[in-house]
Deep mutational scan, measured.
Amino acid sequence: ITGDVSAANKDAIRKQMDAAASKGDVETYRKLKAKLKGIR
């Protein structure tokens, strides 16, 4: 179950990262990237 949750989280975070990148929001992008590392 835990694996599914983190996989879903990663997917959601990647989508947020894409949105931040397209807006040029480097700050948010970095925060999300750090979150991704924390999940692993």
Rank of each mutant, 00 (worst) to 15 (best):
D25N: 00
A20Q: 01
I1N: 11
Q16F: 05
L32W: 03
K15T: 05
R30I: 11
A12P: 04
S6V: 10
A34Q: 07
K15Q: 09
I39Y: 06
R14K: 07
T28D: 11
R30H: 08
G38D: 08
A12Y: 09
A12S: 12
N9L: 15
E27P: 05
K15W: 03
K33Q: 08
V5T: 09
G38P: 04
A21R: 14
K23N: 06
L32K: 02
D18I: 15
D11W: 00
M17H: 00
Y29Q: 07
M17R: 01
K23R: 13
K31H: 05
D18W: 14
E27S: 04
A20W: 00
A20G: 01
R40D: 14
R14Q: 08
Q16D: 03
Q16I: 05
A7Y: 08
K35M: 15
G3I: 11
K23E: 06
T2I: 10
A7G: 09
T2K: 11
K31N: 02
D18H: 13
R40A: 14
T28I: 04
D18K: 14
G24L: 02
S6F: 05
T2V: 11
T28L: 14
K10V: 15
A12L: 12
L36A: 02
I1K: 11
A20D: 00
G3F: 05
K31V: 00
A20H: 01
G38M: 07
G24D: 03
E27M: 02
I39K: 05
A19I: 13
I13H: 02
R40L: 15
A8F: 09
G3L: 08
A8D: 12
L36F: 02
A12D: 13
K23Y: 03
M17F: 01
G24E: 02
K35P: 00
K37A: 14
A12C: 15
K33N: 04
Q16T: 02
S22N: 08
I39V: 07
G24V: 03
D18E: 14
R30N: 14
M17V: 01
R30T: 06
S6A: 07
G24F: 04
K37N: 10
I39E: 06
R14S: 03
R14N: 02
A8E: 09
S22D: 06
K37G: 07
R30G: 03
A20I: 01
V26E: 13
D18S: 07
T2R: 12
I1F: 11
G24W: 03
K33I: 06
V26R: 08
G24Y: 02
G3S: 07
A7L: 10
I39N: 06
K23S: 07
Q16S: 04
N9K: 13
I39L: 13
R40C: 15
K10C: 15
K10F: 14
V26F: 15
E27F: 00
V5G: 10
K10H: 13
K23D: 05
I1C: 15
R30A: 05
Y29K: 12
S22R: 14
D18F: 12
L36H: 03
R40T: 14
K31L: 02
N9H: 11
K10M: 14
A7P: 08
N9T: 12
G38A: 11
R14I: 09
G3W: 03
G24K: 04
M17P: 02
T2F: 12
D11M: 08
R14M: 08
